[in-house]
Design a protein around this nucleic acid. Structure first.
Lengths: 201, 201, 201, 201
DNA sequence: CATGAATGAGTTTTCATTCAT
DNA sequence: GATGAATGAAAACTCATTCAT
């Protein structure tokens, strides 16, 4: 019984989520009023408050639900037994595949100040992931002995920028091409000089 | 006489600019109401509308005026006769020096959605500059024959990310250290493999 | 069977009454929403409407049920065969004993405007009771020949004020002390001048 | 110049005050929305916020401005050199004269919970004044040696109750009659018994 | 009868913009 | 040009009441 109610609640939250995303993608953040979300969701304004305490709450939910799958995927890659190089490739592929699906929405998620207040972490979360990969790569001896923190940041920034420009590009690249190109860039930036290949770090 | 009026107008705009920046840095974007700007500038709310058509206009001005010096510096570097490598170094140094001065303000400029609407260009402007440098480097034969567009984007993203994380960092790096580290990263990502040094691109 | 249903209904109303009082005492009138009452009573919001037509109805019930015992006690005193002096004493004692039990709740009952709309009578009801006592006392020849209406009002006001100040007092008096002191005041205000004791009114 | 602006501001506040009072008297407290006040005052809703920070502020102003004259009068009486008996008479007269002017409004001021929160003092302020008078009367030897605190409260309550009942009465007394009757009551309640005049208190 | 999600009118508050002085 | 009071549209949020299950 409680299960049924839970289901209903989830269904409703999903509907509201979809509505919010639709408004966001179509009209942008400024247009995201409770009224419009309700309208889009086909419910009354007041009903939104049966599922979210306030607008901030709803925004947080939208962000969470949107980013979670990507974050989850990245986490799995990170925790796998793969080599740093493979993780790097997987990370990049994940990002761009995800981009492909959620184009419009991400524009909001990546840029919104109001959201940034809530989620100062996510921006650096990517950096931290890449930092971990870089560190692993160095330990595996396939990457140069660079500062992992710094290079994690730089690599993440590179991905993010491409991500964002693709987001608004009129003629975006194919996901595979982007992934390959970025991977190439990363490996060149990190790979040990050939002359040193026989040295052990 | 017209000259004098022009001068007055400029003076006033400067005062308003300073006020807006002060509010922005101190209280954030949400607090940036016309009222507060006027108050901070020591003029009447209505007077703002003698110098700017509307809030959007003022915001654009703030952005323009803030970014312009950096943009100008970058342009000069770009148009100079220096080698790609030197331009790269100069570009990076310029960015981080600028960051050092305007910390608080940039937080707003880089993250604010409302602003982003107005200034979709600047974000890609950096990419274009670096694209130009990369292209020059390739022509000069010191960089690998990569896709300049893509690598311009990636490099700019790397700088931007570091820039932003430094913006909110509790213990930021020294500007010189950052510049050197980033330069190192860039050169490694772009330099021609030693084995190919004698080939002509 | 109808009897049984009646019982159930009464039980339910009692539960709702208790809940409403609990909210009122704990959180004040502004917090008395149907939702909170239902929650406190452990029933669904909609169920309240099976027992009360609307909020106003419920409020009226709360008032009635709260004041009724006091009113009943007063009525019994009034209708008894006691002397005016004894009735006066009993009235005062009743009031302050009642106060002692319902402190928090009365704060609401005595001061709330919304309630006053519903219950313009009760305020004057006390006056009327005391008017009756004064009238009896005059007839019995123990009170001065004053205007019973006016003095009923004045005496009731005196009790009420003390009542209310005690309600919010940090260190309230003992009930007996208060009763004695007020009785003394009343008798002095009403008693016939000793010199006139042998005159008939 | 500043004087002029000050004047304008005061004028406006007066207008808003009048409007608020009109709504209050005509339609009661529940009907006192910012919208209705604005409408009644013939200004825009937003304009109210140029003179009052929020609704609470406005309410406080209404209360203050309404009660102040009475309070001022009472204060002057209290601080005068008159005898306790005269002060008592003056106090009573003041109250009822004031009542005569502000009938409808007082209903709100005396009963409103929301207001009471802001002004827990005023209710007891009257008690304190009468306490002072009683104390003076005892010192002057014209009142019985009663507890001034208690009797201040009782007397104030008596006045207040009469005040309130008159407020809603269909056929109110003349102010002079009321004053005389109450004064008579007070003096009887407080005067020293003639037979005991030679005893020491 | 019990439930509690849905409703939507109503409330406070903000703020860019206008305009009379 | 300067001023700042006036405006009013728009936003977030509340809550008594209804009604399908």
């Amino acid at each position: 019984m409680a299960r049924l109610l839970e289901r209903r609640k989830t269904l409703m939250k999903n509907g509201i989520y979809d509505a919010a995303v639709a408004v966001l993608v179509r009209d942008g953040f400024e247009a995201l009023t409770m009224e419009r979300v309700a309208e889009e969701a086909g419910v009354a304004k007041g009903s939104l408050y049966n599922y979210f305490q306030n607008k901030e709450d709803l925004l947080e939910f939208v962000h969470e639900r949107t980013v979670e799958p990507l974050r989850q995927g990245v986490r799995e890659v990170l925790e796998s037994k793969a080599t740093a190089t493979d993780k790097l490739g997987a990370f990049i592929a994940l990002c761009f595949e995800y981009l492909d699906v959620r184009r419009g929405l991400f524009h909001f998620l990546f840029n919104e100040h109001a959201i940034h207040k809530l989620i100062s972490k996510p921006k650096t979360e990517g950096s931290r992931h890449l930092t971990a990969i870089v560190r692993q790569g160095i330990e595996e001896g396939v990457f140069r002995p660079v500062d992992p923190e710094l290079h994690g940041t730089l690599l993440f920034g590179a991905v993010r920028q491409l991500f964002e420009e693709q987001l608004e590009s009129e003629e975006p690249w194919a996901v595979e091409d982007m992934s390959r190109a970025v991977m190439d860039f990363f490996l060149n930036a990190l790979k040990r000089p050939p002359a040193l290949l026989d040295e052990k770090p």
